[in-house]
Amino acid sequence: MATLTIGCFPGLVGNMTYDFALKLAEAAVNKGHKVNIWFSGNAVGSVKAHQKHLKDYSTGEKHLKALIEKGVEICTCEACTVARGIQKPEGIEKVQWNAMHWYLAKIHASDRVLQIGGE
């Protein structure tokens, strides 16, 4: 089995790219691959806990929790996150907070990397 690292940069709401990134991660982990997800840019807004899932809007929380339960490592860029007013105690449990070198270290050990760009 391979290791896939996904760099996810688009915002949670306003496009379906974020949703695609999570679906892809789910498909890969279900096939037995090791998956890492790095959030940066507007994607970091999705790590805030207590999201209300309105049917007109994409949601991150329940999908992220499910992926973490399946062993996916998820990390948010701390600088991007606090710049948006989200503090670590407000974040979804078990989502890691780190600097950009976390992403590079995961890339180093990856067979494939998908950089999913944002705004």
């Binding site: 940069f9 940066s40 840019g41 507007n42 991007c80 600097a99 950009m100 070198h101 976390w102 992403y103 590079l104 270290a105 180093h108 760009g117 944002g118 705004e119």
Partner: peptide, 21 residues
């Protein structure tokens, strides 16, 4: 947008990645 700048900062991060390798 933000991502063109994030490319630069993510590249600079190579300086500190060794602490995790």
């Amino acid at each position: 947008g933000e991502t063109s700048r994030l490319a630069i900062t993510h590249a600079i991060a190579y300086q500190t990645v060794e602490i995790l390798l």
